[in-house]
Design a protein around this nucleic acid. Structure first.
Lengths: 195, 195
DNA sequence: TCAATTATGTACTGAACAGTAAAGTAACAA
DNA sequence: TTGTTACTTTACTGTTCAGTACATAATTGA
């Protein structure tokens, strides 16, 4: 027997929560900040999302899913997978220029090694970073198979490198948002696989 | 007229504060955490450092001074300035592998755009990142002058790129501390200026 | 020895916080 | 229409936090 239905859309509420966590970070995002942005009251939030930490984990995962899908789409947007990397880096640079918020995962890095009960968040952050790397790895593996990448290249090293570059762009995009710097990072980074 | 002398060493106390801020971040570092690590009581901290925010700014500045000095030393540790960049990146990678803490500045990126009265910290973080870039710029400028770098290279773009790579290594060093990844980032990153 | 000054230790304050209890209310099924 | 379920509202709880008042201790200068 179904009771009273939820009066708010859980996905749009989650989107608002992501925004708040993005701007303020986990600690500084108070429940008043969250509930007012989500347009719901406190007990509704607890019913729907558990508590602040599980809400944050849900937000992290949703954010990351979108981010990873965007990355995959960009990487494979060109027939030439090397050109795809360039397209992806430039698009992500421009995205940072627009939002000025960096990356929710990179922003949350200070929650790692915190011995304050953030164990699950820590594991999740590590997993999400690894997913990014693995997506890049798969891309370079395929590029090599199809002859777009020299057999001398180490696709794992390339994946780790570009993953690092992406995190670096996120930090610059947040702290010192300079379109010149972000675009230069993207342009220089791809030189190692451009001829 | 001098009163009762301070019973603790202000520099070692500041070092302990840096450690706490590094591990926990600004928000999560409580005054109890700080005072117990610094081995002083609350009023002594306020007398010596003002308040939590000014203590953090002092910690940030001290950390950054050391960091920048280390970078300059590493960059100029070889006769060949290009080799110096390689030495610096590898040393910093190994440092991340040891500490697993990332970079205090990159870790504090989520305090930017926070509209919660972090204006001075925000400005400081931007300035410190810019100092890093300028140090790299000066290095590449000198390298070009001395014929170690092609005239076609844009030393500002190179500085911004390596600055980004350094921030990326800090994020990876904190969240997903993998020596393989960190060393691969360093090795791949310098390829653009290695022959 | 005493006054002036500065540090220290204890204990407190008010505010902000995450989470919840309790009562009211709206929508569903029978 | 009735019983049931589940959402909403309000107000509260206990805790943690940054910062401070006050008394005390240690130094210097006169």
């Amino acid at each position: 027997m179904a009771g009273r239905p939820r009066e708010f859309d859980i996905d749009t509420a989650l989107d608002r929560a992501i925004e708040v966590f993005f701007k303020k970070g986990y600690e500084k995002a108070s429940l008043d900040d969250l509930t007012s942005a989500m347009n719901i009251k406190r007990p509704s939030l607890y019913k729907a999302f558990g508590n602040k930490e599980t809400l944050f984990r849900t937000a992290l995962e949703t954010y990351h899913d979108r981010d990873l899908n965007q990355l995959r789409t960009l990487l494979s947007s060109e027939a030439n997978p090397i050109k795809g990397v360039e397209v992806a880096l430039l698009a992500i640079a421009n995205n940072h220029i627009e939002t000025k918020l960096g990356c929710l995962i990179a922003n949350s890095g200070n929650m790692v090694h915190n011995d304050e009960g953030y164990d699950e968040i820590q594991e999740m952050l590590q997993k999400l970073i690894q997913n990014n790397e693995d997506t890049l790895y798969t891309h370079f593996e395929s590029a090599k198979e199809h002859g777009y990448l020299s057999q001398d290249e180490d696709e794992r090293a390339l994946a780790q490198y570009f993953n690092g570059v992406l995190q670096g762009m996120a930090v610059i995009g947040r702290i010192n948002n300079s379109s010149e710097a972000l675009l230069n990072i993207a342009h220089q980074a791809i030189r190692i696989i451009s001829d």
